[in-house]
Design a protein around this nucleic acid. Structure first.
Lengths: 305, 305
DNA sequence: CCGGAGGTTGAAAATATCTTTCAGATGTGA
DNA sequence: TCACATCTGAAAGATATTTTCAACCTCCGG
């Protein structure tokens, strides 16, 4: 009698995905008393049971190992081992269910783990937005200009200054002549030197940072190819830019200033620009990169392992 | 020697939830060849590996059971059995959210639009990995130390230098005394001034940049609270760090140097640190932030529209 | 009330799986 | 090249899982 039921279920039903609790309820009537104990424990606390061995679960339910195995079989698994694996999967699923609402703003009293999650989420969002909003035609043109430039001058102040330095560092590494100007006055002084065939890049989130616009204007007037990386393509900086690369503007909160997400966005744009240039100048870029690695290796103390 | 590493990791890291792929990448460099084979298999096909026994996985990777167990240990599990359970959980996770197909490496002849998409995807991945792999306990401790520090010194060279400057800029904005040292010699000279109650932060992807380790060591010896932000928590820099914050190590390619993704990762960590500190010092941080916005507004030319 | 057939149960044996040990293999620096 | 340290896998040892089997219920029918 009961053996029929066993066969029907154990053969008919696949290893069962997440519908475990339901299955237990369906099969419960056809189970013997001690098997029901096991099934209940499993349905009630999958995560907890996943941590137990056969013996452990047998003790916890006041039954024997044999019964546990029998129950696992009835539930459609080849043995307890597989039931346990399924249980672990189930537990992981439940885990993900109660993630903190990462879309919410970062609050003053958020636990540190939430801060990490929210921040990571926000920055991922910023990246996606930036990638989606980036004009590849403009980017292509900027890449083309930079690849063949005699020299590349980069302007940025404040947080954008770091982005500019980052770009300059990388371009230098692949053998291009790039310089990030930090002092606005010197930037203007140097911009005067530019001429056709040179490239000037201005980085400003607000699109209206005078200290950055001014050198770009001078470069523009001197005939250099000018590029603006800004979150406000309608800002004054675009007036003097041959190519405008738009960064995204994520929402900001009191604790999370705009500078933070704009930096993420700017860096992505700058990276794209860099890789584009590296592709175009691959012949010279590759060995130059290799050489700079080589040089760096000597600055490192030997590893522990 | 290797046993030290084992201990650091197996004790420090909890069974790890979904950050397995990230963890594998972080730890891969400190693994032996055959262990890397196992780690790769596990990271590459969690679901498939979850279905295998030790012996099965050993055969599949062409190694021995012993190696499989060793790898499981290194990844932070008590043994293979537990790794397998975690794998089952991971597989269940993946089941729900199917990954997009931009996982390919950036090639020399990729059109610019692909570069943008791949780069954005990679950086998003890096962020997710970093967030998943970040030890919130260590982060919390670092935040606590920084919040009450008399002064905060930050060391970084090369690309990491920019990250350090970014952090310093932000901390300064909320009224803390922070300084990013760029010159290694000056950094050491200044580190001597530190004492208990001060905080020193070293940023190095490789974990073995002498120019950065040296000032941290001095700070450590002087009794300051030391923090390391590194992609190699088993590297020499950790010796002198009270708290180690691990950045993730994304795969790199010829065109996409490690510096690029490590920077993304480092910035996320730094942002988390900053926001944590801002939360803790909200009373003073909020007005300080507001004031710095105010000051910046005057540096902007009026918008066109 | 008794005996036994059919079913249930757990102790213990048998097997599979996982872990540890150890000696040989391999690499590395002097 | 040798000495040293590390890495590796075969096999022994320990655990966990599965199977076996006999005791034990439970429910009938005599």
């Amino acid at each position: 009698m009961t053996s029929d039921v066993k066969e029907i279920f154990s053969s008919g039903s696949p290893p069962a995905p997440a519908a475990l609790a339901a299955k237990v309820r369906t099969l419960a009537p056809s189970m013997t008393r001690s098997m029901q104990l096991v099934a209940e424990a499993v349905a009630g606390d999958p995560a907890g049971c996943a941590a137990l061995t056969v013996t452990g679960l047998a003790e916890r339910t006041g039954t024997s190992e044999a019964t546990v195995v029998r129950t696992a079989r009835l539930l459609g698994y080849p043995g307890y081992r597989d039931l346990r694996l399924a249980l672990a999967g189930l537990a992981a699923h439940q885990e993900s269910g109660r993630a903190p609402a990462v879309t919410a703003d970062i609050a003053v009293d958020d636990p540190i783990a939430d801060v990490v999650a929210k921040l990571a989420y926000d920055e991922q969002q910023t990246l996606a937005d930036t990638a989606a909003g980036l004009d590849t035609v403009q980017l292509g043109a900027a890449v083309a200009a930079a690849s063949t430039a005699r020299r590349i001058d980069i302007y940025g102040v404040g947080a954008s200054s770091l982005v500019g330095q980052d770009l300059a560092q990388k371009l230098l590494r692949i053998g291009l002549i790039a310089h990030a100007h930090m002092d606005p006055h010197l930037a203007v002084t140097n911009a005067v030197q530019l001429r056709s065939g040179d490239v000037a890049i201005a980085i400003t989130h607000s699109g209206c940072t005078g200290d950055v616009i001014e050198p770009l204007r001078v470069a523009f007037d001197r005939g250099a190819t000018t590029i603006a990386i800004t979150g406000r393509p309608d800002g004054p900086v675009s007036q003097y830019a041959d190519h405008v690369l738009t960064t995204s503007t994520a929402r900001e909160s009191e604790l999370r200033p705009a500078a933070m997400s704009s930096r993420t966005s700017q860096l992505l744009v700058v990276d794209c620009l860099f890789i584009g240039v590296a592709q175009r100048t691959y012949e010279t870029a590759a060995p130059a990169l290799a050489a700079s690695y080589e040089a760096l290796a000597h600055r490192h103390t030997p590893r522990t392992r």
